[in-house]
Amino acid sequence: MDRIVSWPDRVETALAWLAGLLWTAPLLYVFVRAFESGTADLSSAWQAAPFGRYYLNTALLVTGITAAQLVVGVLAAYAFARFEFPLRGPLFAFVLVQLMIFPEVLMSENYRTIAGFGLLDTLPGVGLPYVASAFCVFFLRQAFLGVPDELVEAAQIEGVSRLGILWKVFVPAARPSIVAYALVSVSTQWNNFLWPLIVAVSDETRPVTVGLVRFLAPETGIDVPRMAAGTVIVTAPLLALFLIGQRQFINSFLRSGIK
């Protein structure tokens, strides 16, 4: 809509661009520094650490954890949103309380558990504590509650089983929410550092974030182009993915009804 442009509009436009500049300048700077001597810094950084392996680890972790969270979360959310059963309230409250007790706070004991399973320095060891996500259950339950009863009843009349209804009615209807949650989860897991730092010791299990810090560990002081190159290696793929898919990304957030 083009309304009549007043001077507050101009101020807002200027502010928007100023914000855009403030938020992008640091990244632009890093990219410029990384490429200041062509691709030499990039290729030397790439060779200095097995970033390919780190990427593979991160990719496996991110997809594995997100998929597992969604399966577990969809089932639980379905139970809470659709069925009446004894102790439903208290059980849901329990899930809600867990919203705030994230695995990191319990790292010492989770570490023991993982060690007990013999899963230290393995990818499942890094991923398992995150499989049950209270946030996921809570978020998907909200989405499922918004599914109109008529849809469910229509499916019931068609003789669709309860799991069938979940799959054919709830999951498609809540797709934007599921996608939005998946995106949040991917970004969270992509970011994860502390727990993998503790559990993942060898290059075969280290995710990119831990790998980056190890890569930067040498205390030779700050070698900006090298550091910039390492940062670019770690951030570029996700940034590229985001730029390609940003419309869908933002839209799925917008449609998911996060309010």
């Binding site: 928007a16 661009w17 914000a19 855009g20 938020w23 992008t24 640091p26 990244l27 890093v30 970004s187 992509w190 970011n191 550092f193 990119v208 974030t209 980056l212 810090v213 930067l216 700050i222 900006v224 550091m227 390492g230 940062t231 770690v234 951030t235 996700l238 940034l239 985001f242 730029l243 940003q246 933002i250």
Partner: peptide, 22 residues
């Protein structure tokens, strides 16, 4: 602009830390 402002959010904290350390 939206993409620009959102971009830092998808960076790992450690990467952000490396950048700002400098």
């Amino acid at each position: 602009l939206r993409a620009g402002v959102f971009a830092p959010a998808i960076l790992p904290v450690v990467a952000v830390a490396v950048i700002w350390l400098y």
